[in-house]
């Protein structure tokens, strides 16, 4: 498993590229938010649900592309009166960028494609199940205590 901080570093890199970018989220294709970075000025939102929708929307488009046999999905752009959402393929995950309405779309696309390659590599490492000594026992402890908590609900 790779160092989680590496995601924050790459996402911060993306957010710095254009002043209109407000939020970067990395999700996997099951809807789980893996990492996210926001500008301080950005509105506070529930990132987990943003990530879940971003992942589902991207995967739904991907499915649509498969049905229509028009190849691999690269980027989904959603344009709103007050902002834009970009979602791009990123290996086993989806990279999601939220921006203001007035923004250099070309730059965001470029940066997403460029950093997406590196993110995809890191994501592969992150998701790879490498048994580490002592790691499994730790997980088992977590699972065991969840089991006990569950009975008390």
């Amino acid at each position: 498993m790779s160092e989680p901080k590496v995601f924050d570093k790459i996402l911060t890199e993306i957010i710095r590229q254009d002043k209109g970018v407000k939020k970067c989220i990395l999700v996997d294709k099951t809807g789980l938010t893996i990492a996210n970075v926001s500008k301080l000025s950005a509105f506070v939102v529930d990132t987990d649900s943003i990530g879940a929708i971003a992942s589902a929307v991207f995967c739904a488009s991907e499915e649509q592309g498969k049905n229509l046999q028009i190849g691999e999905l690269e980027i989904v752009t959603s344009e709103f009166s007050g902002g834009k959402i970009f979602a791009s393929a990123c290996g086993k995950g989806v990279l999601c960028v939220v921006s203001e309405a007035e923004v250099n779309i070309g730059m965001i696309r470029l940066v997403m494609k460029k950093q997406g390659v590196q993110l995809a590599e890191e994501l592969d490492k992150f998701l790879a199940v490498e048994p580490m000594p002592g790691k499994d026992e730790l997980d088992e402890e977590d699972l065991k205590s969840a089991l006990e908590e569950l009975e008390r609900v």
Binding site: D18, N104, G106, M107, L110
Partner: peptide
């Protein structure tokens, strides 16, 4: 072309 457009616009 993509790079030129993005970077020059910036």
């Amino acid at each position: 072309t993509e790079s030129v457009a993005a970077i020059i616009t910036s």
